[in-house]
Design a binder for these strands. Structure first.
Ligand SMILES: [Zn+2]
Ligand SMILES: [Zn+2]
Ligand SMILES: [Zn+2]
Ligand SMILES: [Zn+2]
Lengths: 154, 154
DNA sequence: ATCGCGAATGTTATATTATAACATAATATT
DNA sequence: AATATTATGTTATAATATAACATTCGCGAT
């Protein structure tokens, strides 16, 4: 679904953006948080907390669930990572400075998640929210199915 | 958030609709499935699987997780109940014949979930999906926050 | 430099959510 | 009635997540 020419660049960019954001906000982008973000960015799709845990184990020795969940909390709280609730998994945010709520197209075949945020969706959802006089905390929009590539569309 | 004059009627209606739908589709609306649906409809908000389990225990003696999850699977598969992924909880569908995908406004204060499905949202989401040549399996739209009543709006 | 503070991480234990696998019972089909 | 199918019961365990407390780290004040 994603056609990054060099995924190493994707990862490097994500880490670099995270650094900048944390510096600007006076947040501590620790080694642990960096490693977890790096693992989240291993591919353009959601990864499970316990898979991150396993990969950390391989790199830095036995790690425990709270370690990973705390790092993920930090990253999601600061918009660097999104939780995909329908999968209990986590994915890197493609544009952490742009906005907080992201919408996703999630391919159940290749496992990739593509952000499909757009103002048209936001506008019409906002309208519904206003009509209901609702005070929004968070919007989850997750669309599962099969992506263009996996469908074999040319 | 909901102003049903008699919630017993809500429950009775939901059970009756379920009966009709199951009959029309030649599905078996068993006692267990009925009881689980009834418990889901105890209020206009999501209920957790293990809370259903506890309430079944009180009514019909020790019940085990698979019993509840299988009944919930049946009910969700047939559009009588929706799973709220952001809460790991289940809520009765207000209009099981109208459509499969429902959008929710979920109040974190009173715990109610209001369906806010409308074609405007569906249309704009569909457009995004088409533009991405995506083949949709399921759409999850969950908006959490504070409802009109809990905000104290008049 | 070291003391003290708050933030981050380590550690142990456990809570919560969900399913696998197999046995039995109920219902439908022949 | 015999057989197949579907639903439920049962045991065990997998997968996801957090509570509670101990230790360490980073950093400013003394
Ligand atoms: Zn890439
Ligand atoms: Zn795909
Ligand atoms: Zn009601
Ligand atoms: Zn409310």
């Amino acid at each position: 679904m994603h056609n990054c020419t060099s995924h190493n660049d994707c990862i490097a960019d994500a880490l670099h953006r995270a650094e900048e954001i944390c510096e600007a906000r006076e947040l501590r982008f620790t080694e642990l948080r960096r490693k977890v973000l790096e693992l989240v960015w291993e591919r353009h799709g959601p990864i499970k907390a316990y898979d991150i845990l396993d990969k950390l184990d391989n790199r830095i020795g036995a790690t425990k669930p709270p370690t990973v969940y705390r790092a993920l909390d930090f990253l999601t709280d600061n918009g660097l990572v999104h939780k995909i609730n329908s999968l209990n998994a986590f994915v890197g945010c493609s544009h952490p400075l742009t906005h907080r709520e992201c919408y996703f197209l999630i391919c159940s075949d290749c496992g990739e998640a593509k952000e499909c945020c757009n103002s048209e969706i936001t506008d019409v959802i906002s309208k519904t929210i206003r009509r209901n006089e609702f005070l929004t905390d968070h919007i989850t929009l997750e669309i599962t199915g099969e992506c263009r590539d996996c469908r074999g569309v040319h």
